[in-house]
Design a protein around this nucleic acid. Sequence first.
DNA 1: CGGCCCGTTGATTCGTCTCAAAGAGTGTGG
DNA 2: CCACACTCTTTGAGACGAATCAACGGGCCG
Lengths: 261, 261
Amino acid sequence: MTTKQEPQSCKKNSESAGKGVSIDFTEVKAHCQHCDLNPVCHPPGLNTDEMDSLDQWFPTRRRLKRGESLYEIGEAFNAIYAVRSGFFKTVLPSPQQRDQVTGFQMTGEILGMDGIGSGFHACQAVALEVSEVCLMPYGNVEELASNLPNLHAHLNKLMSQRIVHDQSAFKILANLRSESRLAAFLLDLGKRFSTLGYSPNTFVLRMTREEIGSYLGLSLETVSRIFSRFQEDGLVDVQTRHLQITNPEALSEIAAGKNSH
Amino acid sequence: MTTKQEPQSCKKNSESAGKGVSIDFTEVKAHCQHCDLNPVCHPPGLNTDEMDSLDQWFPTRRRLKRGESLYEIGEAFNAIYAVRSGFFKTVLPSPQQRDQVTGFQMTGEILGMDGIGSGFHACQAVALEVSEVCLMPYGNVEELASNLPNLHAHLNKLMSQRIVHDQSAFKILANLRSESRLAAFLLDLGKRFSTLGYSPNTFVLRMTREEIGSYLGLSLETVSRIFSRFQEDGLVDVQTRHLQITNPEALSEIAAGKNSH
DNA sequence: CGGCCCGTTGATTCGTCTCAAAGAGTGTGG
DNA sequence: CCACACTCTTTGAGACGAATCAACGGGCCG
C-alpha cells in the first residue's frame, strides 16, 4: 500500500480560525493528479488538461487531530471533503437521547454531501484519529462540473451509491439481530479496507464499542459481548481494537441471518 | 387541493410489454409547465423557454395498477420517475428473510435514483394503489442538466435531501423504541401530506401493517398493538386504514423518545 | 356465499437493555 | 520512568420490550 506524498509546497497556516472554538487547522496545497486516492477527484475519462483544472479548483487540504470536528451540525455548507487519510465518524447530536453515529468514513470516501440540499450541514463530522481531508469548495465544484460533464455524472453516481449503501444499512438495522448486525458491519469495514489495498480480514477498529453500538442500534455492552462470542466461536480474533477475521465465510453466514440457533 | 389535469393528449398504449410478466402499462404525454407537482420538474429560476425544453425531454407518463412494479431490482436503469399521483413502496427483496421495505413515496416524490450509481436498480418499486408517474430518461436528464445548470444543482439538492432524510430514518431505527418509531413515522407521513396541501393529521394509510412493520423494523403484530395503544390513549383515531391524529403534540413527544414510563 | 387476505388480541419465549462492578488500556504529570 | 487518573472494555444478573406462535374477527372480491 503506497500512500503517495507529493513533494514541495507544504505551506502551513497554523492560525486559529477565531471562531470562539480554537481550532488550529493546517492547510496545504493539494495536487489532484498526483493523488489517486479519492474517487471524486478522478472522474473517468478526463484528459491531463482537465485533471489540471481540478487542481485549479480544489487546492487546499486540512489536517485534523483526533476528536476535532471537520464541520458541526447546522454549520453553513461551503465545501465537500474527500478523506485523504485517517478516519471519521458522522454524528447526529441529540440532547434527549444519546448521539447517533450515522456513518464511518475512511480514506478515499466523501464527507459533507449532507449539506448540499439545505445549505447547512445536517450532521457533525469528527475525526477519530489524526486525519487529512481535501477541501473542495462546492461553488467551485458546481462551476467545474458544468464544464466537465464527466465530473457532474460522477458526482451523481457517488451520491446515488451513497443512497444505495444507506438502504442496505437500513435493512441491516430493521431486519437483523445483534450478531448479524455486527457481522455485517465487520465485513463491510473489511471490504472497504480491501478497496484501499489493505487486507479485508485484518484491521484496526478506530472507533469505540459505544460508537459501533450507536451505529448499529445496540448498547456498547451488547457489542462487547458479541465480540467475545465471535471470539469463542473462532470467527474472529479481537484484541480490543485489533481485529482479525479468522472465519470470513461463517461470518458471512451470520451476517446473512442464517444463524439457525 | 387542486390537482391540475392537463387537457388533451391521453394516447393510451395498452400493450403488454411481452416480457413474460404481462404488464399493461399506459403512457401519456406530459406537459411539465402545466404540472406543479413534482419538484424535479421545477428547478428554481427557469424561464418559459427552459420550461418548454423540459417538456421536450420528459414527455411520457406511465400508469400503474395496485401491486404493479415500476421497476424490478437488478433491472437496467434508464430513467428516474416523479410520482404524479398515487403511492409507492420501495422494497429490497430477500430470499432468506422477509422483504425489506426501504421507503414509501407519494405524489411529488422521486423514484429511481438508486440506479444512477451502478446502472442497475438497487431496489424494487411497487405501486400501492393506482398511480401515475412521469418517466424521465436519465440520459436526457443529464444532457439537459448540462445545458441548464439550475436543473443540475436542483438534482444534486434532491439527492442530498434524500441522504439527509435517510439519515434521520436511520436514527429512528437505531435509537427509538417501537412506540416512538411508529409515532415518528405517522408524523413524517402527515408532514409529507401537508406539503401536498392535505391535512397533516387526517389521511389514509395506503400500506399494510406488515409493510409499516418492515419499514420500521417491527413485527406486524407490534404495529397493530401500538395503534391500539395510541387509540386508547387518545392520541389517534384509527379505523383500519383511516387515520386521524387527534393529539399531535403528545405524539411528537413520544416520537422524540420522551415517553418516561 | 365462501375464500382469502388483513387486522386484532392473547400467551409465551427470547433477545437485548439496564444497572453494576471490576479489569485493561492510554495518557499525563510528578 | 513510574504512578495516577480517566476512559474504554469486559462480564454478570436481572428486568423489560418485542418477536413468535396461535386463534379469531372483519372486510373485500370472485
